[in-house]
Structure formats: C-alpha cells, structure tokens
Design a protein around this nucleic acid. Sequence first.
DNA 1: CTGTTAGCGCCTTCAG
DNA 2: CTGAAGGCGCTAACAG
Lengths: 355, 355
Amino acid sequence: MTVTLADVAARARVSPATVSRVLNGNYPVAASTRERVLRAVDDLDYVLNGPASALAAATSDLVGILVNDIADPFFGIMAGAAQTEIGGPGDGSGRAGGEKLAIVCNTGGSPERELTYLTLLQRQRAAAVVLTGGAVEDPAHQAAMSAKLTKLADAGTRVVLCGRPPLPDSEAVVAALAFDNRGGGRRLTEHLLSLGHRRIGYVAGPLERTTTRHRLEGHRDAMRAAGLAGDEERLTVHGPYDRRSGYDATHELLRREPEVTAVVAANDTVALGASAAIRDRGLRIPEDISVAGFDDLPFSVDAVPALTTVRLPLFEAGARAGRLAMGKEKPPPGGIATIAAELMVRGSTAPPRVG
Amino acid sequence: MTVTLADVAARARVSPATVSRVLNGNYPVAASTRERVLRAVDDLDYVLNGPASALAAATSDLVGILVNDIADPFFGIMAGAAQTEIGGPGDGSGRAGGEKLAIVCNTGGSPERELTYLTLLQRQRAAAVVLTGGAVEDPAHQAAMSAKLTKLADAGTRVVLCGRPPLPDSEAVVAALAFDNRGGGRRLTEHLLSLGHRRIGYVAGPLERTTTRHRLEGHRDAMRAAGLAGDEERLTVHGPYDRRSGYDATHELLRREPEVTAVVAANDTVALGASAAIRDRGLRIPEDISVAGFDDLPFSVDAVPALTTVRLPLFEAGARAGRLAMGKEKPPPGGIATIAAELMVRGSTAPPRVG
DNA sequence: CTGTTAGCGCCTTCAG
DNA sequence: CTGAAGGCGCTAACAG
C-alpha cells in the first residue's frame, strides 16, 4: 500500500539504514550509493513517515509559533518573519529537505488554549516553541505556564519569547525578546504633553495582560512626572485590542470627559476605531482631538491624517526569535533582550486648541 | 526519564491497552477503572507521545492550513476562523483532549514552498489540509499540486479549498469554496461606470494568480460591456498584493495617463497605497480621483474617506472550510460552492469632475 | 562506508 | 470489560 523505507532499500539494493542515512544527510554515504537511493526514492515516490521518524529519533522537525490573534498583523508580521528563518527556503523540488515545519497556533488570547497548544506541541515533541505577544498576568496561569515550559525545555524543546516579558524565574527559556512597551508609552505621552495637552484619555487593552499594563504604566509615568496624576481611572477605558473596542471606548471616554484634547490608544487598530468615533462626533483630528496609536502597523502611515504612533520592529524581532529557536543565533546576555520602541510623530497629533 | 503509557498502566494497576482505551475514549471502559487511570495520568503528569500514537494508529491529529501571507489579515481572518472550528474549545484544564492541532503554514505565495509544506504535512499524515487564497496558474505547478493533493487524499487526508477555485479535474478535493471574484470585480467597475467614470485605471495583483485574473476579468467584462475596450493594457499595472505596490503602481498609472478619474485596486491594502500616491500628487479622493478596493478588510471602513470595496465573507468562509475539513459539515453539491461578493459603496468613490 | 540488530511508545486485533 | 502479543516505520548504536 504505502511505500516504506524498506521498499526503497530493496529497490536500491541497500539496507534500510543506508536509505535513512542518505535521507537525513547527516552521515557519510558513497556518492554512487546515494545516487541509487535517491533514484529509488523518486521512482517509488517515497515520502518519509514523520511520526515513525520522530518516534525513533525522539525528536521532530516541528516548531510551534503561538500567537494571540492570527487575524492581527501585529502577530502575523512576527510569525511570518519567524517562519522565514525556521522554514528554510525549500529546494525548489517540492521535496521536503531538512527544514523544520514552522506552524502557527492561534490561541485567541485564551490562557486555556495557550496551555492546550503547548501540550499538543509537547506531544509532538516539537523542536522549539516561540511565544509571541503579551502574556496574561493571572498568577495561576503564570505558574502553569512556567511549569509547562520547564517540562518542554526538559524534553529538549527550545523555548523563545518574542514580544513578551521574561518569566519570573524560569530557566526554561532560551531567550526572551521583550518590547520596551513602557518606554514607548512614556515617550508617546511626553510628546503629547510637550504639545501642550493636559487632559489625555487612554483607551487601554484588556486587563491583566502585560502589554496592556506596561504601555499604560509608561503613560501614567509621564503623566505623573508632569504633575497630572489623580484622574487616571476616569480617563482610562479598557477593551480588547480591536477596532470596535477603540470605537466604543472612545465614545465612552468622551462621554465621561468631553474636554479631552488627546486620545492615546492601546495600539494602532484601536486608534483607528478611536478616530472613527471622534469623527462621528463631528470632531476633527488633530484640530479638535489628537490621536495616537502603538505598533506602527503598515496601514498607520496611510491613515488620514497619518497616525502618530510608536514603532515596534516586529519583523526584525520575529526573525530574530526564529533564529534563536533554530539555534542559529546566540542568545543575548542573561537570555533577555529589550527591543527599543521608537516614537513616530505624524499628522494625527498637534497642539490642543487654545481656549 | 520521560513517563510512558506503561508507567501509567503500572501505577493504575491495569494493562497498557486499558490506558490507551481510556485516553482515546473510543472504547468501553469501566467507570472505576477509568477513574483510576485518569488519576495515574495526573499523578505522573503523563503526556501522550504524538509520534508514537500517530505511528501505531496510522493517523494524526494535525490539520494544516496553508496561507499565502500570514501578515495579511485577508488570510489571517480565514485561518483564524478555520482554526476555531478545528481546534476545539479545550477543556479548560490545559490538558489536551481529542481536539485536532490546527497549524498554519505560510507559503509566502511561493509555489515551491506550497508543495514543500504539503509534503511535510503528508509526512505527518495530516488529518486534513485547507488551502486558502488564490492559486498560481503555472501549468507545471498545477499538475504537481493535483498530483500531490491526490496522494494526500489517497492517504486519507481531507483536502479543502477556501477562496481558491476548484482544481481542473481532481477528485482529491472534498470541497472547494471559491469567491466570486469575477462577479465582484464586474459589479465594482459597473458602479464606477454608473457614476460616469470612463477612464479607469487598474492596479492589479501579481500575474499568474487566479485571484488577480478573475478580478481583472470582471473589471474588463464591465469595461467591454460599456464599450470601453481597447485601452486595457495601458491602464493596468501589476504588482504584489501590498501597500507599497499600490503606491508605486498608482504613480506609474498616473504617469501613463494623467486623465484617469478612478483607480480600482487589486485589494484593500493596495488601495491604501494607491490613495497615498494620489494624495502625494496633491489630488483629492474622491473629488479628483475615486478609489476602490476589494475584500473589505476591517480597516477599510475607517479609511478616510471610507473605502468603496467588495466585501468577501472571509470569516464565514474560513469557518466553513474548517468544518468541512473536520467532516462536521456536508460538502456542497458537486463539491463546489461559489461564495458571493457584495459591493460596498462608501465615500471613496463619487462622480468624476465635470470637464 | 555499509549491514545487522534492537528498540522508540503506542494501538489493535485476538483471546479470555 | 480487560490483558497479552505483535507490529506500525524508522533510527541508532554496533559490528564489519
């Protein structure tokens, strides 16, 4: 029925072990023998049995990339970049060579699904796992994650964090690439303050996520430094990282405080929704209200007016995470690297109206 | 070292066979026995060995989802939707149950990588494969794809096409969900014609892709029906499906023909770039030039002015593909379904200036 | 450089 | 309902 390695061996008149060796290419085989085997493989249209191979070798060529929301380019860009480093270029023959199979798993931001996927990857004896994006801060979940990642690491799976803060005290992780969300958030708000804004609304991401907290903390640090503490709670509205949330939260914000002169959004997608809400109220950007985002996704520069935001080098970070997962790059000192966030000032922010 | 099924059996004082049966749940086991086994599993923190299981059972719980560009929400939305149907909700314990592992593979639009991923999936004995988005029209590649998909199907892998036209003559495919790209393209251009536009530029996608061709054919059908044939080549510029391409191609288009009053883009992302180019030339949308896109991605409604486009039910299509891949839904008659594309008229299109 | 020999960990008949 | 036994297809020592 299905052709096996033994069939190939028979046809090439060699032993199964030899066939295995030429297929894996990690052992010397005479050129003529290799030739013969390869021809047999082609003749028989043989395809390696992944599970059998993984079982015998006790490793597999799967690399998992976990993302919170695959429909969000924030994750898509990182995952795609990681995949280019992991997947190899292919040999143009459609025959799979020694490359790894980079697979993207969409957790939808759910802690349960995150753990489930890790278990599934553990089952598959994944060669590496890349966790992207912010983490949920629930202590129970964090403990479960630590435990799970430790087990994965013990089983030989390389664990890399990308755009996620390092775990409290885990030796399991090869490397953690953390974005400077706090610094970026701070500089963004400082920019608004320097323009003269004082009443700044904040449309935050979902509660209990590190990304949300860090960006918000950066914002509040800046506010506090400017002597504007005290009104934080009232001027902050939380919601998911999507367009709709930005829209709704901004309406809520302007209801609570119509005198807001600037709105900082949790990310660019939310900023888009916020902008729509502001316009629906008949207000202009940036003349009446300034708007700022975070991430600098590709569409942000094309918004009208172009969106002031904080640029995160998503592609570069994803690619680096991919290389780390493949062991192609040396981990940073201490296993932790902070990735800079750059303020991008564009047309959506301007000084507040006088009066 | 690693705990195996036999360890669990020993601890639960049953045979390995019994443990296997409770784990797979597809065979009657006494409640008390099951209880004991489950407890042993928890005590020992046992994780099933996927490869061993797949080898013995000759099947696996992997489902592959192939996308052309994971950073593009067009694919992200479909893939995410498919994954919700495939991955199951999890049981909240982080312990993986009977669900499938939905994995997204990013081909980058490369035919070679597409075939490579299919081979990798074939190796893993994937339970199903979902191919999303347009196909490359190169005959050699199409033949190779047909052959590969047939082999996958023969090995028991369910193949589903989502947003991709059915293969010429393949019995391999369970179901093909094709978008009505041609009809959508035609109606979009008819809309522009009805507004009074006559000189319409077209920023097309990459050559040799079904999506590109069908949308362009719809456009040209409409032009021809209006007696406006003849100038197609000059008013069409091809490029990748990205923002940059839309920007560059639109500049090129306006260089070739400054009298263009409307630009139709291959998709919404391209339309964003086209809009930026138009503005950079000091022209207004829609007063000087109308712009239209395709897909109706989430950001399109927030563009300024809001983008006229053709809505594709990406989430619904992806979810349906996921269900078909799981065998949860009956395939459409003949295995082929055409998914309607709906014209969304918004602010970016208006009658051309008079004179 | 190549063949031989044992498993890898699990599922699945087949008996009981 | 449960146990025993064989093998899924491949790899990894060992010999030669």
